[in-house]
């Protein structure tokens, strides 16, 4: 295991590799942070994965985050050769959050992307199976958005309909109609 690989060297190498692709490269709490554009995401990830020194072959997870003015898709990759992790952040438009799927690079990304869609409504272009995963399939909100409110049934939806009412037994007094 290459222990001598420091985070500053990682940043230098990332700068060389991702010339013109990444928006910004920094580091935070021992994790190298790369801000990427959605359009170049797959390309960026492919370079990071296939580079011999970095070799970020282990897809750790991806998730979403809501920052009120924008959404973010966060990918965390690990390498098995050195202890530096990389976090790739993609800034997304809150009204139309669309990002290319990376399932072509890592099969393991499949369910994580489904979860990000389920919780944040991020659409993954080219995802083989874009369904909700944790919530009910008929849910109408994306629950982890900061402005998500649970769907409350209106009075009309709760209304007691004649069809639902149990049949009146013989001799039973008529029920009072509910308004």
């Amino acid at each position: 295991m290459n222990r001598s690989f420091t985070i500053d060297e990682a940043r230098t190498r990332a700068h060389e590799l991702l010339e013109g692709l990444a928006v910004a490269i920094s580091h935070e709490h021992g994790v190298m942070v790369i801000e990427a554009a959605a359009a170049y995401l797959v390309e960026t990830m492919k370079i990071l994965r296939d580079d011999e020194v970095f070799s970020f072959k282990y897809f750790n997870f991806m998730g979403g985050a809501d920052y009120l003015d924008h959404l973010e898709a966060v990918y965390l990759l690990r390498s098995m050769l050195h202890p530096v992790m990389v976090e790739i952040r993609v800034r997304l438009d809150r009204d139309a959050p669309v990002v290319p799927s990376v399932t072509s690079l890592w099969e393991g990304a499949n369910w994580h992307e489904r979860e990000a869609y389920d919780l944040f409504g991020i659409t993954f272009e080219g995802h083989p199976d874009p369904r909700r995963i944790l919530s009910r399939p008929d849910m109408d909100v994306f629950p982890c958005l900061k402005d998500a409110r649970p769907h409350r049934k209106t009075r009309a939806e709760w209304k007691w309909t004649a069809l639902d009412a149990p049949k009146r037994l013989p001799g039973e007094p008529p029920r009072r109609e509910r308004s």
């Binding site: 072959k57 282990y58 997870f61 890592w106 393991g108």
Partner: peptide, 8 residues
């Protein structure tokens, strides 16, 4: 290799 690419 599958275990690694899946993230097991």
């Amino acid at each position: 290799h599958e275990a690694v690419s899946q993230g097991l």
